[in-house]
Design a protein around this nucleic acid. Structure first.
Length: 156
DNA sequence: GCCAACGTTGGC
DNA sequence: GCCAACGTTGGC
């Protein structure tokens, strides 16, 4: 019997994540333009972030967060391909998943709102602002979805 | 294997 | 634009 928290077969096989991007680099609009086929989440050059991507399964969901200027969750994405070689890396070190846009956040959730919510004080976004790919707990997922105006958090 | 120096990210 | 936090690099 193994219960590693993140993935317990049957109960909740979907994990949740948060993907950060500077809109000037890769924006939600650009992501949506890729449609259901999705796009590589490439150019991540951080081991922790890479390792999280290695844990991802097709169907996992994630927040799409605009950093720096906007600092808000603007949409939801779905993992549509598991970790593979980053096509923009020729050293063989870096991998990435593919993600596809699922839906907009009806009301984008600003970092200030997240910081103001005591139940979200443990979010990685709050405590390690520099990590660009990070895990989100089931509870955090629900709360942020609700704050963003989604009555029913999307299911994979 | 430690740690100082440096580079980068991203909030403020 | 500044700087804190974090990660990486490289000399010892």
């Amino acid at each position: 019997m193994e219960m590693d928290g993140q993935q317990s077969e049957g109960l909740s096989s979907v994990a949740y994540w948060l993907f950060k991007s500077e809109p000037g680099d890769w924006s939600w609009e650009e992501q949506k333009a890729q449609g259901a086929k999705g796009e590589e989440w490439s150019r991540v050059r951080n081991y922790q972030a890479r390792n999280f991507m290695r844990e991802m399964k097709v169907g996992d969901l994630g927040f799409f967060y605009h950093s720096v200027k906007e600092k808000r969750v603007v949409g939801i994405v779905k993992v549509c391909a598991e970790a593979h070689q980053d096509s923009e890396d020729d050293t063989g070190t870096w991998e990435c998943v593919d993600v596809a846009a699922v839906c907009d956040m009806p009301e984008p959730v600003h970092l200030d709102q997240i910081k103001a919510e005591p139940k979200l004080e443990k979010m990685v976004l709050v405590n390690n602002s520099r990590l660009s790919v990070q895990p989100v707990s089931d509870q955090e997922w629900k709360i942020v979805c609700r704050m963003g105006g989604l009555k029913e958090p999307p299911k994979a």
